[in-house]
Simulated scan of single mutants.
Amino acid sequence: MDEALLKVESEQRSNAVVLRAEGEVDSYTADLLRDKLSEAFGAGLPVVLDLSDVEFFASVGLSVLVEFHLRGEDSGIPLRLVSPRGSVLRALKATTLNQTLELYLDLDAALHG
């Protein structure tokens, strides 16, 4: 069921691990996002999470982002978010996380951080 609602593809590049999320992040799919982020952080490179194709983003998704932002701060591995819009951007602004997390307009900008 999770995979039907959320798809997360991973690509390791020389300077970062890029995750592309598509679909919905909610209580049913948050564990998939958490697992993919955990795998990405294991590479020891900056992690770029592209949220441009996420249509719905529940509060549990914010918890996952905060969890990995803090993990990144502790380990020196940045978490960079690409193109949050719609419900993702509204959720980030409502909680002022848009002022804490690293947000980028496009993948190229995030890769060069």
Rank of each mutant, 00 (worst) to 15 (best):
L19C: 02
F57K: 08
S59E: 05
A4E: 14
V25S: 08
Q99D: 03
S59H: 11
S52E: 12
D31G: 12
L97W: 06
V25C: 07
A21I: 06
H112W: 05
E9D: 10
L51K: 06
K7T: 09
L32Q: 04
L103M: 14
L37E: 03
T96N: 11
P84W: 03
A58F: 05
E39L: 06
L101I: 00
R20L: 11
L51C: 10
A109W: 13
V17N: 01
V82I: 12
I77C: 11
D35R: 09
H69G: 14
E11V: 12
L19I: 00
S59I: 06
L111T: 14
S14M: 14
V54P: 13
L5S: 12
V88D: 09
L33M: 13
K93L: 10
L70Y: 13
I77Q: 05
D74S: 11
L45F: 09
L103P: 12
G44N: 01
L32E: 07
D2N: 14
G72V: 03
D106L: 10
D26P: 08
L62W: 03
D35M: 08
E9Y: 00
L101R: 05
A43M: 06
E73M: 01
N15L: 14
L5W: 09
V25P: 04
V54N: 11
S27T: 11
N15K: 01
E24M: 10
G42F: 10
V60T: 11
V48R: 06
V64D: 01
H69Y: 15
R90I: 14
A94L: 15
P84L: 04
A94T: 15
V88N: 15
D26H: 03
S75V: 12
L37R: 07
L49E: 05
G42H: 13
D50K: 10
A16P: 13
V17K: 00
R13P: 00
S87A: 10
Q12S: 09
R13Y: 03
D50T: 13
V47D: 02
T95H: 09
K36G: 02
L111Y: 04
D106E: 13
D26T: 11
H69P: 01
T100M: 04
F68Y: 01
R85I: 12
E11H: 15
T96H: 07
S14T: 13
A43S: 14
V18W: 13
